[in-house]
Write a protein that binds this DNA or RNA. Structure first.
Lengths: 222, 222
DNA sequence: TAAAGTTTTTAGGTTTGCCTAAATTATTCA
DNA sequence: TGAATAATTTAGGCAAACCTAAAAACTTTA
């Protein structure tokens, strides 16, 4: 397969389509891509045609788009680059958890395979990024640890925080206030039926968090 | 001064113009920029107009271009980014001397001031890059060590290799063969009038190098 | 099931950064 | 010094990646 060199735009589209498709399994609407990338639907259609011609997505007029095998492969490489840079920014350059995403968004488009491989080695082949997201290896293989949310636990069950979905600064600050970070152990004290908020125990202190918050915190059951 | 965000192209032009201008002192011809960037003269004219409108260069029709104060400032920041990345690639990621330029050429356009400052700190504020070129600090200040070439030494004088001008792989391989790298001590054995080649002593072995080669190797006299 | 609403596409523009060909200006040198 | 040559600019085009407005196709719902 001739390693096609893609533009930054094309790479961003592929990454978004992959993310929206839930690992290539779902059809993706033109509108959803438009919203995620903040680009008008008409422009998205243009690009879908282009990616379609390159066999990176299948696009059926007025229906939706599916990412192809080779599209997935490329998307995983971009995600790999992104997450490795995040590890570097966080662990080596001491950036805070919520500052790394934007910079990694730029760095991920520097396309030298050797660069990424050497970076990977330098970082000692990390398996997850600072948000707890798994990092694909050189071959695009990725650990699909099917994570559950806090709200999926029952009363008295325990878990370890393993992944934070929302990457906004606001959310980051909230977690800091709650003393929650990756690795934190939590225990479900109570589940409130009314609004599905959850009372949890963190370091022997109990707090009540909303449904929205608990959905954004993935855990490993213990 | 409102921090204008420049495109990759604009940054590359500014960097080239700065380099050709010998630190802002010389007028630069449209043709010389064209040659360095491998872009047709007509396109260079277009860009010069654009940079002129932004007050980054002064451009006089059919005469030449001069880089402005603010142009120099920006150029120095780009050079700073480039050289810091080169140090990172060489020292941390263990890239070879001749592989780093191309990758740094990409990385230098990732424009986060915080990124570069943290990188600088992480690398312990290096003063020179792997080629021996000085790295501007955050303020754009740069050590102007006025280096002399091998050919400037007289017979029996000694020097330490401090900077390699030519960054091509070929030249790199040649230096490897000659056992020359930054820090190597050399002594002038003889200067051949005929073609201005020089006989030098490296690690007790004597070799004759052409004028072109000796011009590309800067040294510090000892 | 047809009208209304939503989604998607088409058509026609814009900007950026490049190109070629031709015109203009500057320089060289006989 | 003026004719040839070289350097530079102008003019007109092109592709990429956006945009808006309008048309077309799908979906919902009364």
């Amino acid at each position: 397969m001739p390693n096609i060199k893609l533009s930054k735009s094309e790479e961003n589209y592929l990454k978004s389509i992959f993310n929206l498709s839930e690992f290539g399994n779902k059809q993706v609407s033109t509108n959803s891509i438009s919203k995620i990338l903040n680009i008008e639907p008409a422009s998205v259609t243009d690009m879908l045609k282009k990616l379609s011609k390159k066999n990176l997505v299948y696009h059926e007029k007025y229906k939706g788009s599916t990412i192809s095998k080779s599209g997935i492969k490329i998307a995983l490489q971009i995600i790999r680059r992104h997450r490795l840079w995040e590890v570097f920014l966080h662990d080596k350059l001491k950036f805070k958890w919520d500052e790394i995403h934007e910079i990694a968004e730029e760095l991920e488009h520097v396309s030298s395979e050797e660069l990424i491989d050497n970076l990977d080695k330098y970082l000692k082949y990390p398996k997850i990024d600072p948000h707890g997201d798994p990092i694909p290896n050189k071959l695009g293989e990725i650990d699909f640890v099917d994570k559950i949310s806090i709200s999926d636990l029952n009363i008295n069950e325990k878990g370890i925080v393993s992944r934070i979905i929302n990457e906004d600064e606001e959310f980051f600050n909230l977690l800091k206030k709650l003393n929650i970070e990756i690795g934190t152990e939590i225990k479900i004290v109570d589940k409130i039926e009314y609004d599905q908020s959850v009372e949890i125990l963190i370091n022997k202190k109990s707090v009540i968090i909303s449904k929205d918050i608990s959905n954004n915190i993935k855990i490993t059951k213990i």
